[in-house]
């Protein structure tokens, strides 16, 4: 961990010092092949084509931010990655495993790909701690004490150990979302997906969530993030993918995409955001 507080950096839009760590307990890939590989993804709902041949590569430790106007297919793409939505055609690989393979167990895949939702979706009948232990116990088969220890360390990581026994309805939106992140982290995912994690929150509450995300970036977590928070995209992302109408329009490092986009469509989009 660097001596600077990474959280402050995200909030101020500064660049985050990244610790390049080799992820724990992975070993399925070498440095050459990307951790997450998406090839020619197609998806339609009825007549509406949401994804039209999307390809994407995310290396270990990368933070890929997906941006684009609403309805561009960002969220659908994210949900395809852990098969909450089934694709029509195309392939997704996580390391050597094909996520979209017919014999692949989606439940096993989902343990390796954590997800944080826009509408948070904490289990309403469980305390913050129980929200985390549920998956560990029922899916991982961990013992009660083991799961509890892990849950507490994750809650500590997001700074909510004191609220461990609170129920979702007793937490603020930002706290809830931090528990949501802890819940996903507890399953030891190789990749974390964030689906507009702050868009349901008030600005001052989203900061605490962004801080936690910045911390993850600093720890070297591989992340795919859909967000409208351009401060996070600038400060934390290693790559920006701009999607429109179900296609990848442009992809590159944040500085270039933000300041010198190649495509006119991309430039117009960032213009419109800035004017807001």
């Amino acid at each position: 961990m660097s001596e600077r507080n990474p959280a402050d950096d995200t909030a101020t839009g500064g660049r985050i010092e990244r610790e390049r760590t080799t992820g724990d307990a992975v070993g399925t890939t070498d440095a050459e092949t990307p951790l997450l590989r998406v090839e020619d993804l197609w998806k339609s709902y009825g007549d509406e084509e949401v994804l039209r041949g999307v390809s994407l590569e995310v290396d270990r430790g990368d933070v890929e931010v997906l941006v684009g106007p609403s309805g561009s297919g960002k969220s659908t793409l994210l949900r395809c990655l852990n098969r909450l939505t089934e694709v029509d055609s195309g392939h997704i690989y996580l390391g050597e495993t094909e996520v979209t393979g017919p014999d692949t167990d989606p439940n096993a895949v989902r343990q390796q790909i954590g997800m944080v939702f826009q509408d948070i979706n904490l289990f309403a009948h469980l305390t913050a701690r129980q929200n985390i232990t549920l998956g560990l116990r029922k899916v991982r088969g961990q013992s009660k004490t083991e799961a509890r220890r892990r849950a507490d360390s994750e809650l500590d990581r997001v700074g909510l150990l004191e609220q461990a026994d609170s129920y979702p309805a007793q937490l603020s939106g930002g706290q809830k979302q931090r528990v949501g992140i802890a819940r996903a982290l507890a399953m030891d995912p190789e990749v974390m997906l964030f689906d507009e994690p702050t868009s349901a929150l008030d600005p001052e509450l989203s900061n605490e969530v962004l801080e936690v995300m910045g911390q993850l970036v600093a720890e070297g977590m591989t992340m795919v993030v859909v967000t409208h928070e351009m401060r996070f995209a600038r400060g934390g992302a290693t790559g920006i993918t701009f999607l429109d109408e179900g296609k990848v329009i442009e992809r590159g490092p944040p500085d270039r995409i933000f300041d010198d986009p190649e495509r006119e469509r991309t430039a117009r989009f960032f213009q419109s955001i800035r004017h807001e």
Binding site: N82, L84, N107, A108, R110, Q111, G114, M115, F117, D119, I120, N121, L122, F123, A124, L134, G135, K138, V139, G180, R183, A184, M187
Partner: peptide
């Protein structure tokens, strides 16, 4: 809320486990 089941599935629970727990 439908999101509850989605969240359960996102941490690797089967549909039946999500309904059950």
């Amino acid at each position: 809320d439908e999101g509850q089941l989605t969240a359960a599935r996102a941490i690797g629970m089967t549909r039946l486990e999500g309904i059950r727990y």
